[in-house]
Design a protein around this nucleic acid. Structure first.
Length: 318
DNA sequence: CCCCTACGCCATCTTACATCA
DNA sequence: TCTGATGTAAGATGGCGTAGG
């Protein structure tokens, strides 16, 4: 089941990006460091249901593959998606950004009086938990959910008041949250056994644990998206600056050509190099010519010129 | 092929809490 | 110091898609 879910996740995380950015110069690729984030391991993902394509952008559990992997959510509403890594290599400047880290708000909240609240005695702890569809399913079918017998926080007061429809929300105690966080770091999804064990340990209902993990995954993804957006922004700025620089260089060379053509002729010819965004290998001009043609798979990216190409220059290689 | 169940993701609602005027 | 408005984080819910039996 988990594998299946991971495969689906991979597909859903394909944000449909098709940017042809070359970040090799701006952000040197380094070996993948130990990720602080512990989302589903990329390597264990089976191939997504799409033609084989270089997944040269992959973030923490997020796959940024060409548009065939468009996230369903993005079909509904175009969210900004971005990347955190290239070739599976985490971008250096993103290191240290732990999207798993509890938001500042948690710490803030942790300091408030609620951390003394005993998890097991929280008066709010369960009031809303059994009205959900899973709870209903649990009631009818009965999976591993240890209903009243599980000693859940609210196993005794079970919605007695919630019959009125009021949805009282519990706040997990600091300890409960910490345990959940630790567990999430180990695996961001739970199998029924783990869920039940965690629920028992925390004196919560499995459904609550399940919901917590669901929300945690969603928030992790959101955070990652924000990080990715920031990364793309920086990429864009870097490339814009690089473009300006190259244009200046072109202008200077053209000026030089006009002022001192003889000197210009002795200069080494400008090379036409392209860099494959997939493998970051420099290609020859011939290869570049081939690569310039649309990829058979319809990949949106083509060669990324890393040096200016002098189409009408005198020194253009034949 | 259809149905059911379980599960995950997503959008959204709701509530608790912090901050500030 | 108290209070109400406001913003934010997070728990919870319902809908939907998918896979497997």
């Amino acid at each position: 089941m988990e594998m299946m879910v991971n495969a689906r996740d991979q597909e859903q995380h394909g944000l449909g990006l098709s940017l042809s950015l070359s970040i090799a110069t701006a952000h040197p690729v380094e070996p993948p460091p130990q990720r602080a984030i512990s989302v589903a391991p990329i390597s264990s993902h089976p191939a997504p249901p799409m033609p084989p394509q270089p997944q040269w952008w992959s973030g923490a559990g997020l796959f940024f593959s060409p548009s065939s992997g468009m996230d369903r959510s993005l079909e509904r509403k175009q969210q900004p998606g971005a990347v955190a890594a290239c070739h599976g290599h985490e971008m250096p400047f993103l290191r240290g950004i732990d999207v798993n880290r509890a938001p500042a708000g948690e710490a803030r909240r942790g300091s408030c009086s609620e951390d003394e609240e005993p998890a097991a005695s929280s008066p709010n702890s369960t009031l809303s938990s059994l009205s959900g569809k899973r709870a209903a399913a649990t009631r009818s079918g009965g999976d591993q959910t240890p209903r009243a017998g599980g000693g859940g926080v609210g196993s005794d007061d079970e919605d007695s008041g919630a019959g009125g429809g009021s949805r009282k929300k519990l706040r997990l105690s600091k300890d409960q949250a910490a345990v959940l966080e630790e567990s999430f770091k180990e695996h961001n999804t739970l199998n029924p056994k783990q869920k039940a064990a965690l629920a028992k340990q925390l004196n919560l209902k499995p459904r609550q644990v399940e919901v917590w993990f669901q929300n945690r995954r969603a928030r992790t993804k959101l955070k990652q998206t924000e990080v990715d957006c920031e990364f793309l922004k920086r990429c864009c700025e870097t490339l814009t600056e690089e473009n300006r620089r190259l244009q200046r260089e072109v202008a200077e060379l053209r000026a030089l050509k006009l002022v001192a053509p003889h000197q210009y002729a002795r200069m080494p010819p400008p090379t036409t190099l392209t860099m494959c965004p997939s493998c970051e290998r420099l290609a020859t001009a011939d290869e570049a010519g081939r690569a310039a043609r649309p990829a058979p798979t319809g990949l949106p990216w083509g060669p990324v010129p890393v040096r200016p190409v002098f189409v009408d220059g005198p020194a253009r290689r034949s």
